[in-house]
Amino acid sequence: MKAFLASLAVLIAGSVLFFKATDGLQALTAEGARRLAVQREAPMVSSFMLETMKGSAEPLPGAPGKAVMVEFIYTTCPTICQSAGGDMARLRDLVIAEGLGDRVRLFSVSFDPDVDDVSHLARYGELHHADGEVWTIARPTVNDLPALLKAFGVVVIKGDPDTFGGYEHNTAIHVISPTGQLSSIVDTDDFDGALEALKRTLS
């Protein structure tokens, strides 16, 4: 009887701990937890000044009353960011088709501002047909970079030098409400999810 009670107590305590540690079985990975936390808490994002591909300065989050969609990239990326760039172009087209072009700003922000100067940003924009109207390519200052990545929960690590090198990071689209709250994080090819999140913040 004692052994049964002891085992039962451990079983209950262990299950409760596991339930808590996974946010109710909803997030097993740090990335899952990041997205869930943003959805629940919608934290305010402090303002960062970016330099765009046209050489002008622009704040992130953008002008008041405008929603923002941000992805993080580096322009010398050989593989996944190029497809992410294609995804972002597609998202820009969808946003315009929905008639929301003047209510949202799209940013592809470089996390490699040392290498990605204005000419690199411009070339990347040209490659993916970003004209700077709805969607622009930009970079933070080197000093702001750690705080910027931390605010968004983006982790960048050096890639495998044996293969492509470069960086690996948790690629995603981050949706910021017109009030400056980070309200949703979705996969770069989840267009429906991104549009839905955008409409939710605008309504």
Binding site: V10, A13, G14, S15, L17, F18, A21, T22, A27, L28, T29, A30, G32, A33
Partner: peptide
């Protein structure tokens, strides 16, 4: 006890 502790450390997060 060991089982639940192991399970916790098996979570990628």
């Amino acid at each position: 006890v060991a089982f639940f502790t192991i399970i916790f450390w098996m979570l990628p997060r």
